[in-house]
Design a protein around this nucleic acid. Structure first.
Lengths: 111, 111
DNA sequence: GAAGCATATCGTAGATCGACGATACACAAT
DNA sequence: ATTGTGTATCGTCGATCTACGATATGCTTC
C-alpha cells in the first residue's frame, strides 16, 4: 500500500474551480453565524421563536445569567439584526427579525 | 398615544410556552455555528464544497493568511466535525464531512 | 418632582481568539 | 540515512468575548 505522488494527485481534481467565494459574502455569513455561536444566544433566539415576542425580564428569568449579561447578548443579537427590540414604556419587547432569520436560513441552505 | 401597563401587556402573550430548549441542543448548535463564525473558515468551507477534496497547500495559496493560521482554522473545522482530513503521504487532503454539514443545515432549517 | 421598576451601559477581570514566525513532525525521494 | 516538502504545533502578542456588579438611563406612577 505504498502511495506515490501520482496516487496523491488523484485525491484532488485540479480541474475543478478553486475560485474563492466573495469576501463580502463570507463576512455576511460569518456575522450571522457568529450571532448563534454562543449557547446563551442560541437559547435566546429559540425562546423568541417560540413566542411572538418576549420581554427582556422574562428572558433573564429563564437564563442562568445576570441581567447585564443577558442584555449584552441581546445587544449582539440586535447588532447582527437577528432580533429586534421594541421599546414599550419602561420595558423592551424583543422579537425575531424574520427577514434576517430567513436570510440566515437561506445562506446556510444554499451553502 | 400614552401607553399604559395594560397596553404593554399586549405585546407579550404570556400563555405561550417559555420553556427553554435543551441546553445540550443549544451547545450543539453553538458549536456548529461557531465553526462558521469567521470569514476565513466560511471561505474554506465554501472552497471545499466546490471540490471533492482539496490539499491544505491549495487552500493556503488562495487565502491571504499564513500557513500556520490556515492550519489553525482547519483544526477548528476538524474539531467541530465539519471537515475531515485524510493523510495522503506527506500531504493532507481535506474534504467536507457531509453528515456534519447536513446536521448543521437541519439544525438551522428547523430553527 | 420623587420613587420605583425595567433595561442599558460602564468598568473590570479572566479566558479565548486570531494572527504570525519559528520550529517540530511525517513521509517521499534520493 | 539525508534531504526536501507539506503540514501541524508552539510561543507570543494584541484584540475581543464573556461574565459580573455597579451604576446610569428612561419611563410610569404617585
Amino acid at each position: 500500500m505504498v502511495r506515490t505522488k501520482a496516487d496523491a494527485k488523484k485525491c484532488c481534481t485540479t480541474s475543478e474551480t478553486l475560485a474563492l467565494p466573495d469576501v463580502a459574502w463570507a463576512e455576511d455569513m460569518a456575522k450571522l453565524t457568529w450571532a448563534l455561536a454562543h449557547p446563551a444566544r442560541v437559547r435566546i433566539v429559540r425562546l423568541l421563536l417560540n413566542r411572538t415576542s418576549c420581554m427582556c425580564g422574562e428572558i433573564v428569568e429563564e437564563m442562568p445569567l445576570a441581567q447585564s449579561t443577558v442584555s449584552q447578548h441581546l445587544k449582539i443579537l440586535k447588532e447582527t439584526g437577528l432580533v429586534q427590540g421594541e421599546i414599550d414604556g419602561p420595558r423592551v419587547c424583543y422579537c425575531i427579525n424574520k427577514e434576517a432569520m430567513a436570510k440566515l436560513k437561506k445562506l446556510i441552505a444554499d451553502l
